[in-house]
Design a protein around this nucleic acid. Structure first.
Length: 266
DNA sequence: ACGAATGTTGCGGG
DNA sequence: ACCCGCAACATTCG
């Protein structure tokens, strides 16, 4: 369930460890080839061998390694994890790829459900074309959000999950942000009044920033580094708490399928 | 014991 | 434009 705060947590953790490393080669020890979104293992080796990592940053839920030429992008999807320590036996069989560095260290991509993907690209224009605004940027503010909501007629939950409008929100933070702003997940964007819209913009930023500070949410899968867990799980107000009393009104939290996703609201 | 649910994304169909 | 269903895949829960 890595969403924006979890991806940022992974980056914050690995940035100092990976910066200036030189890639020696890449392997896929379990022969799973679909992880390579564009190209074969040989292509990736040709493109990556000898390249150094200049910087690491995030766009939406993508981890981007800025190489001395080109970019290597990692999407964790549902269960992807990065580890530098050699994985234990159980995790070893879920290694989708292994990046070897010239200094002998490694970066393992462990992915139980194998949805995670690796991309190589010379530029990021295709990514910027398909992803919407960064919710933590200054461009994302009350004014921008209100304009967005008014210009579409969509259910709020799937709207916020749609990465081409706002990049980085997933199931957990969408539920939390809507609940905090008093907006029903099925409410139609066009009908949201200005006060609620303004509140939503603030809550999205607050919740994401706080979750990054707590190093993300661990419910089932998320961990980073040496099996470090996120601490935002304890700060969740309604996600994963069906039937428990709503912190605001004390009536039981409702969980329903909306937009094919388990959705919590009150 | 077996079906359902579990984060994310993309695609086809209505 | 927008919604829905499904698929990718493995594991856990009831």
């Amino acid at each position: 369930m890595p969403e924006l705060p979890e991806v940022q947590t992974v980056i914050n953790h690995y940035e100092p460890k990976l910066i200036n490393k030189i890639i020696h080669s890449i392997e896929n020890p379990n022969g799973y080839v679909k992880v390579f979104e564009n190209g074969t293992l040989n292509d990736y080796n040709f493109l990556l061998s000898g390249k150094s990592i200049k910087s690491i940053f995030r766009r939406g839920k993508y981890i981007i390694l800025n190489l001395c030429s080109g970019y290597l992008l990692i999407h964790l999807r549902m269960t992807g994890k990065l580890e530098m320590d050699k994985p234990n036996k159980k995790n070893m069989k879920h290694v989708s790829f292994k990046l070897k560095f010239q200094d002998g260290s490694n970066l393992f991509f462990i992915d139980v459900r194998k949805f995670g993907r690796l991309y190589f690209s010379n530029n990021l224009s295709w990514l910027n074309n398909k992803l919407g605004i960064e919710p933590l940027s200054s461009e994302f503010n009350s004014k921008w959000l209100y304009k967005l909501l008014k210009s579409h007629k969509r259910m709020m939950k799937p709207f916020l999950l749609d990465q081409k409008f706002i990049a980085g929100l997933g199931n957990i933070y969408t539920d939390e942000a809507l609940w905090s702003s008093g907006i029903h997940p099925k409410a139609i964007s066009k009908n949201i009044n200005k006060n609620r819209s303004n509140l939503l913009a603030i809550e999205i930023k607050n919740i994401l920033n706080k979750a990054i500070k707590y190093q993300g949410t661990t419910i089932i899968n998320f961990s980073y580094g040496n099996n470090k867990n996120g601490n935002f799980s304890d700060e969740l107000q309604i996600f994963g708490k069906p039937n428990l009393p709503c912190p605001k009104c004390k009536s039981p939290i409702i969980k329903k399928f909306i937009a094919q996703r388990g959705t919590h609201f009150c």
